[in-house]
């Protein structure tokens, strides 16, 4: 019997787990944005991701119980679908962060406000200046605890951002030779 002749196998239903988890992540983010909370964007995203993860685990547990699978297959499918949820959550995290910090997005929104009238480069540069960007990034890094300030000098704190910077530097050397 060829693979195409087989009846649709039940592991396909497991795909519902990461999809429901992602839907929960997105829905929680919409709800949290409307609540009078004093938590920052990053914490909100971790909370909504966590809620989605609970849904993924619950759905996987319910579905895997009803499937005639061996222990290795259960582990394999769990990792596969948890991985899919993690990837989806990472993508959603970056969609939110792009809207917060992407200069290109900010430029596009500035052009949209003027549309259909053209926006002069000088006016755009005044809105999206290097000085303004530096100040907002420094504030965000201070608020996130990635850097500290003593007097007029800033200092790094070892952490995730430092690790990511190092990782990107290695990848840049490997892939782009710079």
């Amino acid at each position: 019997m060829s693979p195409l002749d087989q009846p649709a196998a039940s592991p396909a239903v497991l795909t519902a787990a990461p999809l429901l988890g992602l839907a929960t992540d997105v829905a929680m983010q919409v709800i949290l944005a409307r609540l009078p909370l004093t938590v920052g964007h990053l914490r909100r995203q971790f909370i909504s991701f966590g809620a989605g993860l609970v849904v993924v685990l619950a759905v996987l547990w319910l579905l895997l119980r009803s499937l005639p699978l061996g222990p290795l297959d259960r582990v394999g499918y769990s990792v596969l679908h948890l991985g899919s949820y993690a990837f989806g959550g990472f993508c959603f995290f970056n969609v939110i962060n792009l809207n917060i910090s992407s200069l290109r997005i900010r430029m596009l929104k500035a052009y949209l406000q003027q549309h259909p009238r053209p926006l002069a480069d000088e006016v755009l540069m005044a809105t999206c200046s290097a000085a303004g960007m530096l100040d907002s990034r420094l504030q965000r890094l201070l608020d996130g605890g990635q850097i500290t300030r003593s007097g007029d000098r800033f200092h790094p704190r070892p952490g995730f951002v430092t690790f990511i910077g190092g990782l990107f530097a290695h990848l840049r050397r490997l892939l782009l030779g710079r």
Binding site: Q29, L32, A33, I96, Y111, Q139
Partner: peptide, 20 residues
């Protein structure tokens, strides 16, 4: 225009305040 409108809609839906 499509991307700018999508970004604006997402900012509204998720209560995003840009800081760049």
């Amino acid at each position: 225009i499509r991307i700018a409108r999508l970004a604006t809609a997402l900012a509204c839906a998720f209560g995003i305040h840009e800081s760049a």
